[in-house]
């Protein structure tokens, strides 16, 4: 797979779990382009699926979920942006947050206006990184 370290992909989907397969498919494809190992592709895809599911819990009805993948030579940043009902970011002491923390190298969530921006950072450990 041609390695393309610098790439930006954006996807906007209805805030519904019915569309999460799109987010998973895009994540796999982006990770593969970055020469991630199969294992890391699956961990990252699982993380995106979990992060999106987490945001959907608190998403406003009929809103949208935006997902951005930004790859660089050193890492992959996935940002998930949702319209929050509660107006607060997810707590960091829940099971969901523990899962995310184990699956990716860094996870963060901030509130900006009425939007939650949840970001996942992954450093590739595949062939290139070795």
């Amino acid at each position: 797979m041609t390695n393309q370290p610098e790439a930006a992909i954006r996807l906007t989907i209805p805030a519904s779990s019915a569309y999460l397969s799109l987010a998973r498919a895009a994540t796999s494809a982006v990770c593969a382009r970055m020469d991630f190992s199969i294992e890391q592709i699956e961990d990252t895809t699982l993380a995106v699926n979990e992060a999106a599911s987490l945001l959907l819990v608190d998403a406003q009805p009929d809103s949208e979920l935006q997902i951005n993948w930004q790859s660089s030579a050193s890492d992959l940043l996935v940002e998930l942006v949702s319209h929050s009902s509660s107006g607060r970011p997810p707590r960091r002491t829940t099971f969901a947050w523990t899962v995310l923390s184990a699956l990716v190298d860094d996870v963060d969530a901030v509130l900006a206006a009425d939007r939650i921006r949840l970001s996942l950072t992954v450093h590739p450990t595949g062939a290139l990184a070795q």
Partner: peptide
């Protein structure tokens, strides 16, 4: 270590897209 998609595609003699599809 776990292989990459490129390595899998070469090993199986299929395209990288097919590996992704399978995953």
């Amino acid at each position: 270590r776990s292989p990459t998609v490129t390595e899998m595609a070469t090993h199986l003699d299929i395209s990288e897209d097919e590996v992704l599809e399978g995953l």
